[in-house]
């Protein structure tokens, strides 16, 4: 669990642009240890280092490039859906299986209470240790995952429970079984049904919003993103290898794809940005979870007041607006 990571984010994994930050953090810890051991007073030095540390965190995280944001979103110590569920979903009861084929561990569905709100939660979970990662296929769902999600969403609709989805996936799994059982159909049907599900739906990208695999549980009334998550039509590496003809240009591709929460808010793809703790969610799980919980509760309270007719009308209009086109006269060309 990420609880031990409050100050030193997953010592084994240091992002390239975090090297100095982690060094400083280590110095502070060492000095604190020395102080405790020797009984000498280093508090002034420690305070100074702390100030330096905080200002450096600010400087770094206020100016993350899109590619750095992708790296934060993929940080091995970043809280996963399972961590958030553990932090703030009370009385969590998982519901297993799509009643067709299998129980896909990449998508967790269940009942629980968030704040005061009863909800159905659908969450993409990547797994923390190797065993768990393999169990949930690194968060890359098969068709049965999407079909389970739909089954549980229908349950939510029937019993008038709101749906909360947590999105964190590189994408739907590109494998033989996935194609045989037609993940494309599963995703398409989910989007269609979510667009008309007669109950409130809040979706939050908490890490990676990987293309259709994310959107397959991503249609709702309000779409939020954690500050350092990303959402994209294609992975930066994939885009780079096609357009630049080398995956090494992923940083440029990340820039071009405008995949950060800030960019996506500016073009109205998402509705809200949920702030992360200073230095990213991997530095402080409980603060990140608190922010996410407050956002979900607040948003559910807002949208559950609407009549079903208004809810679905607004939802349709929200998605209907997606995209940017011009009329031919504006391009100076004729048909």
């Amino acid at each position: 669990m990420a609880k031990t990571m409050e100050s030193a984010p997953n010592g084994s994994h240091v992002l390239p642009f975090e090297k100095v930050i982690v060094q400083l953090d280590r110095q502070i810890s060492e000095m604190e240890a020395q102080q405790a051991q020797s009984g000498k007073d280093f508090s002034a030095e420690i305070r100074q280092l702390r100030a330096q540390y905080v200002s450096l965190l600010h400087k770094t995280y206020d100016n993350l490039s899109p590619w750095e944001t992708v790296q934060v979103a993929r940080h091995p110590g970043r809280p996963l859906a399972g961590d958030y569920i553990e932090q703030f979903v009370k009385n969590w009861q998982e519901l297993h299986g799509d009643r067709r084929f299998a129980d896909d561990r990449a998508i967790r569905c269940g009942l629980g209470r968030i704040g005061t709100e009863k909800a159905v939660v659908i969450a993409q979970h990547k797994g923390r240790d190797t065993r768990e990662k393999i169990e949930c296929n690194f968060g890359c769902a098969h068709p049965e995952g999407y079909r389970k999600a739909l089954r549980v969403m229908r349950l939510a609709e029937k019993f008038k429970l709101p749906v909360v989805t947590l999105i964190d996936t590189q994408g739907a799994y590109p494998g033989v079984g996935s194609e045989e059982r037609c993940v494309a159909e599963a995703i398409a049907v989910n989007m269609l049904e979510m667009s008309r599900l007669k109950t409130p739906i809040v979706c939050v990208v908490i890490g990676e919003g990987g293309s259709g695999g994310a959107l397959g549980i991503g249609v709702g009334d309000r779409i939020g993103m954690l500050q350092f998550s990303y959402y994209s039509v294609i992975s930066p590496e994939g885009c780079a290898s096609i357009l630049w003809r080398t995956g090494e240009k992923a940083p440029e591709a990340a820039e071009a794809l405008k995949l950060t929460a800030k960019h996506l808010k500016a073009i109205d793809v998402i509705d809200d940005i949920i702030p992360e703790p200073l230095g990213g969610a991997h530095r402080n799980l409980s603060e990140a979870a608190g922010n996410l919980e407050r956002y979900i509760v607040r948003t559910l309270r807002q949208i559950k007041r609407l009549s079903v007719g208004d809810l679905l009308g607004n939802r349709y209009e929200r998605w209907r607006r997606m995209g940017k086109v011009v009329s031919a006269d504006q391009t100076g060309q004729s048909t």
Binding site: R196, G212, L215, V219, V233, L257, L259, I267
Partner: peptide
């Protein structure tokens, strides 16, 4: 498939077209 050059806006067309087909179905 989806066009990379319009980024997430291309991706969102998947949901938009599906939603319109939901209404058509209704």
């Amino acid at each position: 498939g989806a066009r990379m050059h319009e980024g997430a806006l291309s991706l969102m067309q998947m949901a938009k077209t599906s939603a319109s087909l939901g209404r058509f179905d209704d």
